[in-house]
Nucleic acid binder design. Structure first.
Length: 458
RNA sequence: GGAGGGAUGGCAGAGCGGACGAUUGCGACGGUCUUGAAAACCGUUGAGGUGCAAGCCUCCGGGGGUUCGAAUCCCCCUCCCUCCGCCA
């Protein structure tokens, strides 16, 4: 792990991989895939990863390097045992005054030490290579996840409240036009402040944005503990959830302080239990958080640049759970149902997609996407992605629980999803509820959050 | 930001170069006693790696160094506490 440590001065060196050397380091040797499973059950791991359409070269490499690493480590340990024995001998001889013999033993120990050093260097190098590979290998998909090559293959599980014939001309106006006309969205000045793909809500637009978060929090407060987490986090925190090392370009970095802006509250919420052993009685543990989210959208520059469809900073309410493996499938259903419930309460048509193996995120075991229909832009907008990570994140983050009666702690399963993401829902609302006179009549569920306003006019 | 003090097993707290993976107390667990419980007494009790196993190895906040040998000595970092400065 020597290469991961801070340099002698402790100052993070700049450069494309500066965070590799930073405070808090990347986590220690914490693979995402169970290395033991790679050893004992290689074929099934390979088959699982193949379903994602993944290249298996890295996995093969891991298997081979691991074999060599273990052999070297065993040899090194044997030499270490000898050194210990010989050193003990030295102590005894010195006490007995047998100086000459002691010196001979010292020489012997010294040469053993050189051999140990060589073996250890080699074994550590291999271990590091294995770790780097393992951190980049994605999660294995659930057997229930549908097969497919990409987003075109995601089955639509259900569509709720959508009637393509039901829309009138006055709803076919993009939210940015209505927003500017009503003075509730000020994109022009947002660009002046922060550049393209930033947004600014004003007046009732801002109240609506905040009200949406409040609504989402209130709807889940029956079972979820509200958390207000930090939104700047260490590299190690971003690694635990899987954003690093592979997706460093997608996040905003505050280099001089080795901090990153969170892309989602999933990041701090998941790390809350990092390096802890939870009581089984406390599971499932449900948490929710409102937070701003920051995304560089590096891979999608130039796409969806108009309006609120894709922005660098937005507000979101995230719901998350730690669960036992047995509880996880039901928890996935619960999170989906909760996210759906909020969309339904807002009266927005939506559909549910079962994400196929080829479109699953790197750390996802199974995912469902929720999309709302926005008539003004005539598109389905992804507003929530609810995912089950199996033990992938828990392994990286070292989150465990002790099954009752068991001696050995096991990794928990993590699940999370957006309860509500503001900009796209805001857009869909403004388009869906636009009246013939250009005002926006908001659904009743929001009224308690709008200070008495029910219709946003000029 | 400056100056001092600290970080050891679930907790408290010893150890300051060799018999220390770590005294002890509390807690927890098992047992004896008891109608039951308490008390008392006896015993067990950190984590991880590797191996069929016996075992061996690693871990005293993290990293590096000195040494035949480091929890113990040296250097760097992080975090916590106290004081000063600054501050929503």
């Amino acid at each position: 792990m020597a290469a991961m440590a801070a340099d002698a001065t402790g100052a993070p060196a700049a450069g494309p991989n500066w965070w590799r050397r930073c405070r808090g380091r990347l986590l220690g040797f914490r693979p995402m895939i169970d290395l033991r499973r790679v050893r004992t059950d290689y074929d099934s791991v390979a088959a699982d990863l193949a379903r994602r359409g993944d290249d298996l070269a890295q996995l093969e490499q891991v298997r081979d390097l691991d074999e060599r690493q273990r052999a070297l480590a065993a040899e090194r340990d044997e030499v270490r045992a000898q050194i210990k024995a010989v050193s003990g001998e030295v102590g005894r001889l010195r006490r007995d005054g047998a100086t000459e013999e002691a010196e001979a033993k010292q020489a012997e120990s010294r040469s053993l030490g050189e051999r140990e050093q060589g073996l250890d260097d080699e074994a550590s190098l291999l271990a590091e290579q294995i770790r780097d590979l393992l951190l980049r290998i994605p999660n294995t998909p659930s057997p229930d996840a549908p097969d497919g090559a990409g987003d075109a293959d995601n089955p639509i599980v259900r569509v709720e409240g959508f009637d393509p014939e039901a829309y009138a001309e006055h709803q076919r106006v993009p939210h940015w036009e209505t927003g500017e006309a009503l003075g509730i969205l000020d994109l022009e000045r947002a660009v002046k402040l922060s550049g393209s793909m930033f947004s600014m809500f004003r007046g009732m637009g801002a109240t609506l944005a905040r009200g949406l978060c409040q609504l989402a929090l209130d709807r889940n407060a029956d079972a979820f503990e509200e958390v207000r987490p930090p939104t700047l986090v260490l590299s190690s925190t971003l690694t635990a959830t899987g954003q690093l090392p592979k997706f460093a370009d997608d996040a905003y970095a505050v280099e001089r302080d080795d901090l990153w802006c969170i892309p989602t509250a999933e990041v701090p919420l998941t790390s809350i239990a990092r390096d802890e052993v939870l009581d089984e009685a406390d599971l499932p543990m449900r948490l929710m958080a409102y937070s701003p989210c920051y995304r560089r959208e590096a891979g999608s520059a130039g796409r969806d640049t108009r309006g609120l469809l894709r922005v660098h900073e937005f507000d979101k309410v995230e719901i998350l759970a730690y669960a036992t493996p047995a509880q996880a499938p039901a928890m996935l259903d619960e999170l989906v149902a909760r996210a759906e419930g909020t969309l339904a309460a807002l009266g927005l048509p939506y559909r549910v997609l079962d994400i196929c193996t080829g479109d699953l995120g790197q750390s996802h075991h199974r995912s469902f996407d929720l999309e709302v229909y926005a008539p003004g832009v005539d598109r389905w907008l992804e507003v929530s992605s609810i995912s089950w990570f199996s033990d992938y994140q828990a392994r990286r983050a070292n989150i465990r629980y002790r099954p009752t009666g068991e001696k050995r702690a096991e990794h928990v399963h993590t699940l999370n999803g957006s309860a509500l993401a503001v900009p796209r829902v805001w857009a869909a609302l403004v388009e869906t509820y636009r009246q013939p006179d250009g005002t926006v009549a908001l659904p009743e569920a929001l009224w308690p959050y709008l200070r008495g306003t029910t219709v946003i006019g000029r």
